[in-house]
Design a protein around this nucleic acid. Structure first.
Lengths: 338, 338
DNA sequence: CGCTGGCACTCGGACGGACAGAGTGCCAGG
DNA sequence: CCTGGCACTCTGTCCGTCCGAGTGCCAGCG
């Protein structure tokens, strides 16, 4: 429905606007991109594009800027993903390889993404629900006090205190530890509840209360920690947002502090492949003037968590998408190795 | 050297400026505070205060604003710490009591501080070096692989993998666990190195390598985790900074992302009592237009870490100091209980 | 039918002068 | 030592003008 040339014009407008941050007019367009037609023709095309809602004028007799819908079309049809250059790839790999533990991997990833894209980076910790159990440990800290430590294949460790209804001997503890591990080690977290369901039955009556307490704490941990954690960075890049600054930046900072909002944001993004949410496509109001580029990453072929960046709708989509994809890929590798 | 009235004038200037964010003139001063003298007199006093460097004019024929030196005097001599009201105290306590683990305590504290002061809050995790050991646990994950878990009296947990030079039996492991705990449980982290020094000597020759490996990992953990962690929050409050916004806010955001900078900042603050660093008193350049109010907190009488807020030099010092002190006190209580 | 050049029109941003208001410093008098 | 008065200075604002960029439309051309 839109002629080839009109798409070219839209692409040119997006590119110029992203570069200059200023409304772009017909004359400037023909000068910078050799479209082979005159400004007048471009004006006609622009009028058509405006009718369709892809671009808009801040005010009469100003240049045009892309609308969210315009960016959408640009991302879907007009722009590819700009691959990283080999030196960039090497830099990413080197930077990530120095990490010593999971926290460090996540921290480095955030830094890296923020630097590469010059935007705000968000990295979700590998999810517990999609991970598998490496080991469950029980420590007796006091006669009626047990500490539960949960170790995942992604290196994450969670611990919880359990107050026992009755004193619990070392032998019972060792017994429980052994049985518990033989059932859940190597299994996915989602399967754990059914796997341990009948476990108390094998124990003496007096110990069952404690066993149940331990198990329910374990299940609680799985549920609670289902609320994923995440790390953000590069907030200083918010200062490059635009001129109307204070109004735009405040809700963004607020959104970034509300991990719940961010997690929901990432959660809504498609499970496979890269997702780009532009402006009003974001459900959260404060982020209506931002775009979110996110992608899943994981140690194997499967995604265990997501990462991405938050930036102004006026962003370099191909470059950002390239960086996000590359970082996700390398983080996956690093996790697989450890 | 400064007459009583001149100090009153300075106090009035600080209070008005903090409230209005605008340079304050002699006339407005006499109107709002009944100083009992005429504007002309106040003008003379202002001239004197300016000569001494306590206040300054943005430009000729404008009102005066306090200098860093002026704020200093205000904080040291003119202002008290404004205590929290009973309802506020209750709110603090209620809010903190809902915390389930150390992470949660810290997270809640950050939120609380940011809300109370409407500024950026910084909370340091309880330091390992000043804490005591509650328990050291050793888990055998594989014949030659041991996991070391360290639990502190503040509820912090650290874990490390240890690769053993030789297979290490369960009995040896239990032996080591028992001996280790009998030596270090309840002791301060700083004392641990000397306490475990001769521990390998009690073991068979074949096990000594592993014992040494475990011990050196333990000591490493102490050193590494000496690099404290911290949590920040309330960055959205930065938007209330002032008009010249983008320039001021950027370096602050950058500083907040550099945990190293913040830790140094807190570290430089005095060990006991509340510390207020005003503007250029902060060593880090990016924070030259901010003030940092910090105080130590701890489970017992002794401080194990610090917390505080970062805000514009033009802040409500008495109120901020009151909030910081109160929060620190209640966090200390909560930690002591758990 | 689509492209082009020309033309009149509109609007925002920059420039500059005038003006009001707030604040100061200084001085003479109580 | 305080006070009222006075002249001065500086900023922020308002207003009118002007310029340039950009548009929409139209008639003509291939």
């Amino acid at each position: 429905m839109l002629s080839e040339r009109r798409l070219q014009v839209l692409r040119a407008i997006v590119q110029d606007y992203v570069g200059t941050e200023e409304p772009v007019g017909s004359k400037a367009l023909t000068e910078r991109h050799n479209l082979g037609v005159s400004p007048a023709t471009v004006r006609n095309d622009m009028a058509a594009l405006e009718d369709e809602g892809f671009i808009a004028q801040p005010h009469t007799s100003a240049g045009r800027i892309p609308t969210d819908k315009g960016y959408r079309l640009f991302v879907d049809k007009l722009a590819g993903v700009k691959p990283m250059t080999p030196p960039e790839r090497r830099a990413i790999q080197n930077f990530l390889e120095g990490a010593v533990d999971l926290d460090d991997v996540v921290a480095r990833t955030v830094r890296l993404l923020a630097q590469l894209t010059r935007q705000v980076a968000v990295v979700q910790y590998p999810s517990l629900t999609r991970s598998t159990v490496r080991h469950v440990e029980l420590l007796s800290l006091a006669p009626a006090r047990v500490m539960l430590v949960l170790i995942t294949d992604t290196g994450r460790v969670e611990q919880r205190m359990v107050d026992c209804p009755a004193p619990f001997g070392e032998t019972s503890l060792a017994d429980l530890r052994a049985r518990l591990n033989s059932r859940v080690a190597g299994r996915r977290f989602t399967d754990v509840p059914t796997l341990v369901e009948d476990l108390p039955e094998g124990f003496d009556l007096e110990d069952r209360g404690t066993v149940s307490a331990v198990l329910s704490t374990l299940l609680e941990t799985l549920v609670e920690e289902n609320e994923e954690r995440l790390m953000i960075g590069g907030t200083a890049n918010l200062t490059r947002f635009g001129h109307d600054f204070p109004l735009t930046i405040r809700p963004v900072l607020e959104a970034l502090e509300e991990q719940v909002v961010l997690l929901k944001l990432l959660g809504e993004a498609g499970d496979s492949g890269m997702t780009v949410r532009i402006g009003h496509e974001n459900a959260y109001e404060g982020l209506n003037s931002t775009s979110v580029v996110s992608v899943g990453y994981g140690s194997g072929g499967e995604a265990v968590a997501k990462l991405g960046v938050v930036g102004p709708t006026r962003m370099d989509y191909p470059g950002t998408m390239g960086a996000v994809r590359a970082v996700a890929r390398y983080v996956g590798q690093i996790l697989a190795e450890s």
